[in-house]
Design a protein around this nucleic acid. Sequence first.
DNA 1: CGGGGCGCATGACAGATGTCACGGCGCACC
DNA 2: GGTGCGCCGTGACATCTGTCATGCGCCCCG
Lengths: 201, 201
Amino acid sequence: MIRVVLADDETLIRDAVAQLLGLEDDLEVVAVAGDGPAAIAAIREHRPDVAVLDLQMPGADGIEVAETVRRTQPGCQVVVVTSHGRPGYLKKALAAGVRGFLPKTVPATVLAGAVRQVAGGGRYLDPELAADAISAGDSPLTPREADVLELAAEGAPVEEIARRASLAAGTVRNYLSSAVAKLGVSNRHEAVRLARSQGWI
Amino acid sequence: MIRVVLADDETLIRDAVAQLLGLEDDLEVVAVAGDGPAAIAAIREHRPDVAVLDLQMPGADGIEVAETVRRTQPGCQVVVVTSHGRPGYLKKALAAGVRGFLPKTVPATVLAGAVRQVAGGGRYLDPELAADAISAGDSPLTPREADVLELAAEGAPVEEIARRASLAAGTVRNYLSSAVAKLGVSNRHEAVRLARSQGWI
DNA sequence: CGGGGCGCATGACAGATGTCACGGCGCACC
DNA sequence: GGTGCGCCGTGACATCTGTCATGCGCCCCG
Protein backbone atom coordinates (compact mmCIF):
# COMPACT_ATOMS: atom_id res chain seq x y z
CA MET A 1 0.00 0.00 0.00
CA ILE A 2 1.39 3.39 -1.04
CA ARG A 3 0.70 6.06 1.56
CA VAL A 4 0.00 9.51 0.11
CA VAL A 5 -0.30 13.02 1.53
CA LEU A 6 -2.15 15.46 -0.73
CA ALA A 7 -1.93 19.25 -0.66
CA ASP A 8 -3.98 21.72 -2.69
CA ASP A 9 -5.43 25.05 -1.60
CA GLU A 10 -8.76 24.52 -3.35
CA THR A 11 -10.87 22.36 -1.10
CA LEU A 12 -13.09 21.08 -3.88
CA ILE A 13 -10.11 19.88 -5.89
CA ARG A 14 -8.45 18.48 -2.80
CA ASP A 15 -11.53 16.50 -1.83
CA ALA A 16 -12.09 15.30 -5.36
CA VAL A 17 -8.53 14.20 -6.02
CA ALA A 18 -8.32 12.55 -2.61
CA GLN A 19 -11.45 10.56 -3.43
CA LEU A 20 -10.04 9.61 -6.77
CA LEU A 21 -6.68 8.44 -5.47
CA GLY A 22 -8.40 6.62 -2.64
CA LEU A 23 -10.33 4.54 -5.15
CA GLU A 24 -7.09 2.95 -6.35
CA ASP A 25 -6.50 -0.36 -4.58
CA ASP A 26 -2.84 0.25 -3.87
CA LEU A 27 -3.08 3.90 -2.82
CA GLU A 28 -4.13 5.36 0.50
CA VAL A 29 -4.52 9.08 1.19
CA VAL A 30 -3.45 9.38 4.81
CA ALA A 31 -3.72 13.16 5.13
CA VAL A 32 -4.57 16.30 3.18
CA ALA A 33 -3.47 19.91 3.58
CA GLY A 34 -4.64 23.26 2.24
CA ASP A 35 -1.44 25.29 2.33
CA GLY A 36 2.33 24.95 2.39
CA PRO A 37 3.01 24.91 6.12
CA ALA A 38 0.14 22.49 6.72
CA ALA A 39 1.56 20.23 4.03
CA ILE A 40 4.96 20.23 5.71
CA ALA A 41 3.37 19.44 9.06
CA ALA A 42 1.22 16.66 7.61
CA ILE A 43 4.19 15.07 5.87
CA ARG A 44 6.24 15.25 9.04
CA GLU A 45 3.51 13.63 11.06
CA HIS A 46 2.27 10.94 8.69
CA ARG A 47 5.55 10.10 6.93
CA PRO A 48 3.94 9.12 3.61
CA ASP A 49 5.67 7.37 0.74
CA VAL A 50 4.60 10.07 -1.70
CA ALA A 51 3.51 13.70 -1.34
CA VAL A 52 1.29 15.09 -4.10
CA LEU A 53 1.61 18.89 -3.99
CA ASP A 54 -0.08 21.66 -5.87
CA LEU A 55 2.45 24.17 -7.15
CA GLN A 56 0.41 27.22 -6.18
CA MET A 57 -0.39 27.31 -2.49
CA PRO A 58 -0.55 30.02 0.16
CA GLY A 59 2.26 30.12 2.70
CA ALA A 60 4.81 28.04 0.85
CA ASP A 61 4.51 26.81 -2.71
CA GLY A 62 5.01 23.24 -3.81
CA ILE A 63 8.68 23.79 -4.58
CA GLU A 64 9.48 25.19 -1.15
CA VAL A 65 7.65 22.31 0.46
CA ALA A 66 9.56 19.87 -1.74
CA GLU A 67 12.87 21.38 -0.65
CA THR A 68 11.96 21.03 3.00
CA VAL A 69 10.82 17.46 2.46
CA ARG A 70 14.01 16.53 0.68
CA ARG A 71 16.12 17.94 3.51
CA THR A 72 14.15 16.45 6.37
CA GLN A 73 12.62 13.29 4.90
CA PRO A 74 14.54 11.90 1.96
CA GLY A 75 12.36 8.81 2.01
CA CYS A 76 9.29 10.75 0.95
CA GLN A 77 9.05 11.27 -2.81
CA VAL A 78 7.35 14.37 -4.18
CA VAL A 79 5.00 14.73 -7.13
CA VAL A 80 4.06 18.29 -8.13
CA VAL A 81 0.83 19.06 -9.95
CA THR A 82 0.14 22.44 -11.51
CA SER A 83 -2.30 24.46 -13.56
CA HIS A 84 0.48 26.52 -15.07
CA GLY A 85 3.00 24.50 -17.02
CA ARG A 86 5.83 27.00 -17.16
CA PRO A 87 9.15 25.58 -18.29
CA GLY A 88 11.04 27.39 -15.53
CA TYR A 89 8.86 25.82 -12.87
CA LEU A 90 9.77 22.34 -13.99
CA LYS A 91 13.45 23.19 -13.78
CA LYS A 92 13.11 24.62 -10.32
CA ALA A 93 11.09 21.63 -9.24
CA LEU A 94 13.71 19.17 -10.45
CA ALA A 95 16.40 21.19 -8.67
CA ALA A 96 14.34 20.86 -5.50
CA GLY A 97 14.37 17.09 -5.77
CA VAL A 98 10.86 16.65 -7.15
CA ARG A 99 10.43 13.23 -8.76
CA GLY A 100 7.17 13.76 -10.60
CA PHE A 101 5.80 16.82 -12.39
CA LEU A 102 2.56 17.01 -14.31
CA PRO A 103 -0.13 19.50 -15.31
CA LYS A 104 -3.70 19.26 -14.14
CA THR A 105 -4.75 18.67 -17.73
CA VAL A 106 -3.75 15.00 -17.57
CA PRO A 107 -6.31 12.24 -16.98
CA ALA A 108 -6.69 10.88 -13.48
CA THR A 109 -5.07 7.59 -14.42
CA VAL A 110 -1.85 9.39 -15.28
CA LEU A 111 -1.65 10.91 -11.82
CA ALA A 112 -2.16 7.54 -10.20
CA GLY A 113 0.48 6.08 -12.49
CA ALA A 114 2.92 8.85 -11.64
CA VAL A 115 2.41 8.26 -7.92
CA ARG A 116 3.20 4.57 -8.35
CA GLN A 117 6.20 5.39 -10.51
CA VAL A 118 7.84 7.69 -7.97
CA ALA A 119 6.89 5.44 -5.07
CA GLY A 120 8.90 2.73 -6.80
CA GLY A 121 11.94 4.99 -7.03
CA GLY A 122 11.27 6.11 -10.58
CA ARG A 123 10.36 9.47 -12.03
CA TYR A 124 7.47 10.78 -14.03
CA LEU A 125 7.63 14.00 -16.04
CA ASP A 126 4.88 15.13 -18.36
CA PRO A 127 6.33 14.71 -21.87
CA GLU A 128 4.92 18.00 -23.14
CA LEU A 129 6.29 20.02 -20.27
CA ALA A 130 9.63 18.24 -20.43
CA ALA A 131 9.95 19.06 -24.13
CA ASP A 132 9.06 22.68 -23.47
CA ALA A 133 11.54 22.95 -20.65
CA ILE A 134 14.33 21.49 -22.76
CA SER A 135 13.66 23.64 -25.78
CA ALA A 136 12.99 26.78 -23.77
CA GLY A 137 16.54 27.05 -22.50
CA ASP A 138 17.64 28.85 -19.40
CA SER A 139 16.68 32.33 -18.40
CA PRO A 140 18.83 34.90 -20.19
CA LEU A 141 18.30 37.31 -17.32
CA THR A 142 20.92 38.06 -14.71
CA PRO A 143 19.74 37.73 -11.10
CA ARG A 144 19.37 41.47 -10.68
CA GLU A 145 17.53 41.83 -13.95
CA ALA A 146 15.10 39.19 -12.77
CA ASP A 147 14.70 40.93 -9.41
CA VAL A 148 13.97 44.25 -11.00
CA LEU A 149 11.61 42.74 -13.54
CA GLU A 150 9.72 41.07 -10.76
CA LEU A 151 9.33 44.33 -8.90
CA ALA A 152 8.19 45.93 -12.15
CA ALA A 153 5.54 43.26 -12.60
CA GLU A 154 2.83 45.10 -10.71
CA GLY A 155 3.20 48.21 -12.82
CA ALA A 156 5.16 50.15 -10.25
CA PRO A 157 7.02 53.24 -11.51
CA VAL A 158 10.80 53.13 -11.75
CA GLU A 159 11.24 55.25 -8.66
CA GLU A 160 9.33 52.81 -6.47
CA ILE A 161 11.20 49.84 -7.89
CA ALA A 162 14.42 51.65 -7.09
CA ARG A 163 13.36 52.16 -3.50
CA ARG A 164 12.25 48.60 -3.04
CA ALA A 165 15.42 47.23 -4.61
CA SER A 166 17.67 49.78 -2.91
CA LEU A 167 19.02 50.89 -6.26
CA ALA A 168 19.35 54.17 -8.08
CA ALA A 169 16.57 54.94 -10.51
CA GLY A 170 18.99 55.04 -13.41
CA THR A 171 20.24 51.57 -12.57
CA VAL A 172 16.72 50.24 -12.55
CA ARG A 173 16.15 51.73 -15.97
CA ASN A 174 19.28 50.07 -17.22
CA TYR A 175 18.23 46.66 -15.96
CA LEU A 176 14.81 46.99 -17.43
CA SER A 177 16.28 48.15 -20.67
CA SER A 178 18.67 45.23 -20.93
CA ALA A 179 15.94 42.78 -19.97
CA VAL A 180 13.72 44.19 -22.69
CA ALA A 181 16.58 43.87 -25.17
CA LYS A 182 17.42 40.31 -24.16
CA LEU A 183 13.84 39.17 -24.41
CA GLY A 184 13.37 40.84 -27.76
CA VAL A 185 10.25 42.74 -26.77
CA SER A 186 9.35 46.40 -26.93
CA ASN A 187 8.62 47.43 -23.36
CA ARG A 188 8.89 46.32 -19.77
CA HIS A 189 5.38 45.02 -19.55
CA GLU A 190 5.77 42.62 -22.41
CA ALA A 191 9.05 41.60 -20.84
CA VAL A 192 7.22 40.82 -17.61
CA ARG A 193 4.63 38.78 -19.46
CA LEU A 194 7.21 36.80 -21.39
CA ALA A 195 9.36 36.16 -18.33
CA ARG A 196 6.27 35.07 -16.44
CA SER A 197 5.18 32.69 -19.17
CA GLN A 198 8.59 31.06 -19.07
CA GLY A 199 8.69 30.86 -15.31
CA TRP A 200 11.78 33.07 -15.14
CA ILE A 201 10.31 35.38 -12.54
CA MET B 1 -31.99 11.05 -10.03
CA ILE B 2 -30.43 14.40 -10.98
CA ARG B 3 -28.64 14.24 -14.32
CA VAL B 4 -25.49 16.38 -14.52
CA VAL B 5 -23.17 17.51 -17.29
CA LEU B 6 -19.75 18.65 -16.08
CA ALA B 7 -17.33 20.92 -17.94
CA ASP B 8 -13.77 21.84 -16.92
CA ASP B 9 -10.71 22.22 -19.09
CA GLU B 10 -8.39 20.45 -16.66
CA THR B 11 -8.85 16.74 -17.19
CA LEU B 12 -7.63 15.78 -13.75
CA ILE B 13 -10.11 18.07 -12.06
CA ARG B 14 -12.87 17.00 -14.42
CA ASP B 15 -12.27 13.32 -13.73
CA ALA B 16 -11.97 13.89 -10.01
CA VAL B 17 -15.09 16.01 -9.64
CA ALA B 18 -17.05 13.65 -11.86
CA GLN B 19 -16.07 10.77 -9.61
CA LEU B 20 -17.04 12.73 -6.58
CA LEU B 21 -20.45 13.77 -7.85
CA GLY B 22 -21.05 10.27 -9.12
CA LEU B 23 -20.62 8.92 -5.59
CA GLU B 24 -23.73 10.77 -4.48
CA ASP B 25 -26.75 8.51 -4.60
CA ASP B 26 -29.05 11.02 -6.22
CA LEU B 27 -26.60 12.44 -8.79
CA GLU B 28 -25.53 11.00 -12.11
CA VAL B 29 -22.85 12.54 -14.33
CA VAL B 30 -24.12 11.79 -17.82
CA ALA B 31 -21.40 13.59 -19.79
CA VAL B 32 -18.27 15.67 -19.37
CA ALA B 33 -16.64 18.28 -21.61
CA GLY B 34 -13.25 19.99 -21.76
CA ASP B 35 -14.13 23.29 -23.41
CA GLY B 36 -17.01 25.65 -24.04
CA PRO B 37 -18.28 24.36 -27.40
CA ALA B 38 -18.03 20.76 -26.22
CA ALA B 39 -20.04 21.69 -23.14
CA ILE B 40 -22.77 23.24 -25.27
CA ALA B 41 -22.86 20.17 -27.49
CA ALA B 42 -22.97 17.80 -24.54
CA ILE B 43 -25.78 19.72 -22.89
CA ARG B 44 -27.74 19.77 -26.13
CA GLU B 45 -27.32 16.07 -26.59
CA HIS B 46 -27.83 14.80 -23.04
CA ARG B 47 -30.35 17.39 -21.80
CA PRO B 48 -29.22 17.25 -18.16
CA ASP B 49 -31.05 18.75 -15.21
CA VAL B 50 -27.98 20.66 -14.13
CA ALA B 51 -24.80 21.83 -15.89
CA VAL B 52 -21.74 22.36 -13.70
CA LEU B 53 -19.38 24.68 -15.59
CA ASP B 54 -15.91 25.95 -14.89
CA LEU B 55 -15.70 29.68 -15.46
CA GLN B 56 -12.38 29.55 -17.29
CA MET B 57 -12.50 27.36 -20.37
CA PRO B 58 -11.07 27.57 -23.87
CA GLY B 59 -13.49 28.36 -26.68
CA ALA B 60 -16.32 29.79 -24.63
CA ASP B 61 -16.24 30.53 -20.93
CA GLY B 62 -18.81 29.37 -18.43
CA ILE B 63 -20.86 32.55 -18.76
CA GLU B 64 -21.14 32.31 -22.53
CA VAL B 65 -22.15 28.69 -22.22
CA ALA B 66 -24.72 29.64 -19.58
CA GLU B 67 -26.23 32.25 -21.88
CA THR B 68 -26.56 29.75 -24.70
CA VAL B 69 -28.10 27.20 -22.37
CA ARG B 70 -30.62 29.68 -21.04
CA ARG B 71 -31.71 30.60 -24.56
CA THR B 72 -31.90 27.11 -25.96
CA GLN B 73 -32.69 24.94 -22.93
CA PRO B 74 -34.41 26.84 -20.14
CA GLY B 75 -35.02 23.57 -18.33
CA CYS B 76 -31.31 23.06 -17.66
CA GLN B 77 -30.04 24.92 -14.60
CA VAL B 78 -26.46 26.13 -14.51
CA VAL B 79 -23.95 26.08 -11.65
CA VAL B 80 -20.67 27.92 -12.23
CA VAL B 81 -17.51 26.98 -10.36
CA THR B 82 -14.39 29.14 -10.43
CA SER B 83 -10.88 29.53 -9.09
CA HIS B 84 -11.11 33.31 -9.30
CA GLY B 85 -13.88 34.77 -7.20
CA ARG B 86 -14.12 38.21 -8.78
CA PRO B 87 -17.20 40.19 -7.79
CA GLY B 88 -17.86 41.23 -11.39
CA TYR B 89 -17.93 37.64 -12.54
CA LEU B 90 -20.72 36.80 -10.15
CA LYS B 91 -22.79 39.70 -11.44
CA LYS B 92 -22.24 38.70 -15.04
CA ALA B 93 -23.08 35.12 -14.21
CA LEU B 94 -26.36 36.07 -12.56
CA ALA B 95 -27.23 38.23 -15.55
CA ALA B 96 -26.62 35.20 -17.75
CA GLY B 97 -29.18 33.21 -15.79
CA VAL B 98 -26.75 31.19 -13.70
CA ARG B 99 -28.47 29.70 -10.64
CA GLY B 100 -25.45 28.61 -8.64
CA PHE B 101 -22.03 30.22 -8.22
CA LEU B 102 -19.24 29.00 -5.99
CA PRO B 103 -15.45 29.03 -5.74
CA LYS B 104 -13.33 25.90 -5.92
CA THR B 105 -12.28 26.50 -2.35
CA VAL B 106 -15.53 25.06 -0.99
CA PRO B 107 -15.74 21.45 0.28
CA ALA B 108 -17.12 18.83 -2.05
CA THR B 109 -20.32 18.51 -0.05
CA VAL B 110 -21.17 22.12 -0.78
CA LEU B 111 -20.97 21.53 -4.51
CA ALA B 112 -23.25 18.54 -4.27
CA GLY B 113 -25.64 20.57 -2.15
CA ALA B 114 -25.62 23.42 -4.65
CA VAL B 115 -26.42 21.02 -7.47
CA ARG B 116 -29.41 19.68 -5.57
CA GLN B 117 -30.52 23.18 -4.69
CA VAL B 118 -30.61 24.44 -8.27
CA ALA B 119 -32.08 21.18 -9.55
CA GLY B 120 -34.97 21.82 -7.20
CA GLY B 121 -35.52 25.28 -8.65
CA GLY B 122 -33.56 27.11 -5.96
CA ARG B 123 -30.32 29.02 -6.07
CA TYR B 124 -26.99 28.70 -4.36
CA LEU B 125 -24.49 31.56 -4.12
CA ASP B 126 -21.32 31.38 -2.09
CA PRO B 127 -21.91 33.73 0.86
CA GLU B 128 -18.40 35.21 0.71
CA LEU B 129 -18.57 35.99 -2.97
CA ALA B 130 -22.10 37.33 -2.67
CA ALA B 131 -21.02 39.70 0.09
CA ASP B 132 -18.03 40.84 -1.96
CA ALA B 133 -20.18 41.41 -5.01
CA ILE B 134 -22.70 43.46 -3.07
CA SER B 135 -20.15 45.59 -1.28
CA ALA B 136 -17.96 46.01 -4.33
CA GLY B 137 -20.55 48.00 -6.24
CA ASP B 138 -20.71 48.38 -9.96
CA SER B 139 -17.89 49.26 -12.26
CA PRO B 140 -17.27 53.00 -12.31
CA LEU B 141 -15.87 52.70 -15.82
CA THR B 142 -17.76 53.71 -18.92
CA PRO B 143 -17.93 51.04 -21.64
CA ARG B 144 -15.23 52.68 -23.71
CA GLU B 145 -12.98 53.13 -20.73
CA ALA B 146 -13.32 49.44 -20.01
CA ASP B 147 -12.57 48.60 -23.65
CA VAL B 148 -9.47 50.71 -23.71
CA LEU B 149 -8.29 49.42 -20.37
CA GLU B 150 -8.68 45.88 -21.60
CA LEU B 151 -6.59 46.61 -24.65
CA ALA B 152 -4.01 48.22 -22.39
CA ALA B 153 -3.88 45.11 -20.24
CA GLU B 154 -1.10 43.42 -22.18
CA GLY B 155 1.21 46.39 -21.89
CA ALA B 156 0.59 47.65 -25.39
CA PRO B 157 1.66 51.23 -26.14
CA VAL B 158 -1.00 53.88 -26.60
CA GLU B 159 -0.55 53.96 -30.34
CA GLU B 160 -1.36 50.27 -30.72
CA ILE B 161 -4.38 50.55 -28.46
CA ALA B 162 -5.57 53.43 -30.61
CA ARG B 163 -5.26 51.32 -33.75
CA ARG B 164 -7.01 48.34 -32.25
CA ALA B 165 -9.82 50.46 -30.85
CA SER B 166 -10.02 52.69 -33.94
CA LEU B 167 -9.51 55.76 -31.81
CA ALA B 168 -7.14 58.69 -31.87
CA ALA B 169 -4.11 58.33 -29.62
CA GLY B 170 -5.15 61.37 -27.61
CA THR B 171 -8.56 59.89 -26.96
CA VAL B 172 -7.00 56.71 -25.69
CA ARG B 173 -4.84 58.73 -23.35
CA ASN B 174 -7.91 60.52 -22.08
CA TYR B 175 -9.76 57.30 -21.38
CA LEU B 176 -6.81 55.81 -19.61
CA SER B 177 -6.35 58.98 -17.63
CA SER B 178 -9.96 59.09 -16.52
CA ALA B 179 -9.93 55.39 -15.67
CA VAL B 180 -6.85 55.89 -13.54
CA ALA B 181 -8.53 58.82 -11.80
CA LYS B 182 -11.77 56.94 -11.18
CA LEU B 183 -9.99 53.93 -9.76
CA GLY B 184 -7.82 56.09 -7.54
CA VAL B 185 -4.56 54.58 -8.68
CA SER B 186 -1.41 56.09 -10.08
CA ASN B 187 -0.94 54.54 -13.50
CA ARG B 188 -2.63 52.45 -16.14
CA HIS B 189 -1.08 49.21 -15.03
CA GLU B 190 -2.40 49.45 -11.52
CA ALA B 191 -5.73 50.39 -13.03
CA VAL B 192 -5.65 47.21 -15.10
CA ARG B 193 -4.82 45.13 -12.04
CA LEU B 194 -7.58 46.66 -9.97
CA ALA B 195 -10.17 46.37 -12.71
CA ARG B 196 -9.12 42.75 -13.24
CA SER B 197 -9.40 41.91 -9.58
CA GLN B 198 -12.93 43.27 -9.54
CA GLY B 199 -13.91 41.50 -12.74
CA TRP B 200 -14.62 44.79 -14.49
CA ILE B 201 -12.59 43.92 -17.54
C1' DC C 1 47.57 38.46 -13.61
C1' DG C 2 44.65 39.97 -17.11
C1' DG C 3 40.25 39.72 -19.24
C1' DG C 4 35.32 39.46 -19.08
C1' DG C 5 31.05 39.28 -16.95
C1' DC C 6 28.33 41.27 -13.52
C1' DG C 7 26.66 44.84 -10.15
C1' DC C 8 26.06 49.58 -9.55
C1' DA C 9 25.86 54.21 -10.86
C1' DT C 10 25.60 58.83 -13.61
C1' DG C 11 24.22 61.92 -17.34
C1' DA C 12 21.88 63.10 -21.50
C1' DC C 13 18.38 62.65 -24.99
C1' DA C 14 14.25 61.10 -27.71
C1' DG C 15 10.03 59.34 -27.39
C1' DA C 16 6.04 57.69 -24.74
C1' DT C 17 2.83 58.69 -21.19
C1' DG C 18 -0.17 61.27 -17.92
C1' DT C 19 -2.61 65.56 -17.20
C1' DC C 20 -5.28 69.48 -18.22
C1' DA C 21 -8.16 72.51 -20.90
C1' DC C 22 -11.07 72.80 -24.43
C1' DG C 23 -14.68 71.87 -28.14
C1' DG C 24 -18.18 69.26 -30.83
C1' DC C 25 -21.68 65.52 -31.44
C1' DG C 26 -25.47 62.52 -30.10
C1' DC C 27 -28.79 60.79 -26.90
C1' DA C 28 -31.73 60.29 -22.93
C1' DC C 29 -34.29 62.33 -19.34
C1' DC C 30 -36.78 65.71 -17.10
C1' DG D 1 -36.09 72.01 -25.47
C1' DG D 2 -32.61 72.53 -22.21
C1' DT D 3 -29.20 69.95 -19.38
C1' DG D 4 -26.35 66.47 -18.43
C1' DC D 5 -23.59 62.64 -19.70
C1' DG D 6 -21.07 59.72 -22.52
C1' DC D 7 -18.30 59.61 -26.65
C1' DC D 8 -14.63 61.43 -29.69
C1' DG D 9 -11.17 64.46 -30.75
C1' DT D 10 -7.16 68.27 -30.53
C1' DG D 11 -3.31 70.64 -28.51
C1' DA D 12 0.10 71.69 -25.06
C1' DC D 13 2.77 70.68 -21.13
C1' DA D 14 5.29 68.12 -17.43
C1' DT D 15 6.87 63.84 -16.30
C1' DC D 16 8.20 59.17 -16.93
C1' DT D 17 10.54 55.62 -19.80
C1' DG D 18 13.70 53.57 -22.86
C1' DT D 19 18.22 53.97 -24.82
C1' DC D 20 23.00 54.89 -25.12
C1' DA D 21 27.59 56.08 -23.59
C1' DT D 22 30.55 55.85 -19.91
C1' DG D 23 32.72 54.84 -15.62
C1' DC D 24 34.24 52.13 -11.34
C1' DG D 25 34.76 48.06 -8.47
C1' DC D 26 34.42 43.13 -7.72
C1' DC D 27 35.11 38.34 -8.47
C1' DC D 28 35.88 34.34 -11.10
C1' DC D 29 38.26 31.76 -14.61
C1' DG D 30 41.73 30.86 -17.84
